[in-house]
Amino acid sequence: MLETARYEVEGRLRGSVVLSVGIALLGAFYVAMWPSFADVDLDQFLEAWPPALRELFGVESLASIEGFLATELYQFVWVLLLGLYVAYSAAGLIAGDVERHRMDLLLSLPVTRTRLLFEKFASLLAPILLANVVVPVVVLGSVLAIGETIDVPALVAVHVLSVPYLLACGAIGLVLSVVFDRADVANRLALGVVFGLFLVRSVTAVADGYEWIGRLSPTAYYDPTEILVHNEYDLVGAGVLLAATAVLLLVARWQFRRTDLDG
Score class of each variant (00 low, 15 high):
residue 21 V to E: 04
residue 28 A to N: 07
residue 177 S to R: 05
residue 217 S to L: 04
residue 41 D to C: 01
residue 36 S to N: 14
residue 126 A to L: 14
residue 74 Y to T: 04
residue 252 A to M: 02
residue 84 L to Y: 00
residue 205 A to V: 07
residue 116 L to P: 13
residue 57 F to T: 11
residue 194 V to G: 02
residue 61 S to G: 09
residue 94 I to W: 05
residue 230 H to S: 15
residue 97 D to L: 11
residue 200 V to Y: 03
residue 168 A to F: 11
residue 130 L to E: 11
residue 220 A to E: 11
residue 228 L to N: 09
residue 155 L to G: 00
residue 127 P to H: 00
residue 171 A to P: 06
residue 52 A to C: 08
residue 69 L to C: 05
residue 141 G to S: 01
residue 39 D to Q: 13
residue 24 A to I: 04
residue 91 A to Q: 06
residue 224 P to N: 09
residue 207 A to M: 14
residue 249 L to G: 01
residue 106 L to H: 02
residue 201 R to M: 12
residue 186 A to D: 08
residue 109 L to Q: 00
residue 50 P to S: 15
residue 189 L to S: 01
residue 193 V to F: 00
residue 177 S to W: 07
residue 182 R to L: 09
residue 146 I to V: 12
residue 116 L to Y: 07
residue 87 A to Q: 02
residue 190 A to T: 02
residue 113 R to D: 01
residue 100 R to A: 11
residue 132 N to P: 09
residue 74 Y to F: 15
residue 16 S to N: 04
residue 45 F to V: 14
residue 208 D to E: 15
residue 238 A to R: 02
residue 203 V to S: 06
residue 152 V to S: 03
residue 210 Y to C: 11
residue 163 V to Y: 01
residue 244 A to Y: 07
residue 77 V to K: 07
residue 82 L to Q: 06
residue 80 L to H: 08
residue 44 Q to H: 15
residue 165 Y to L: 03
residue 219 T to H: 12
residue 234 D to M: 04
residue 200 V to Q: 07
residue 86 V to E: 06
residue 129 L to K: 05
residue 203 V to C: 06
residue 15 G to E: 02
residue 222 Y to S: 08
residue 92 G to E: 04
residue 169 C to K: 08
residue 95 A to W: 05
residue 232 E to W: 02
residue 23 I to W: 05
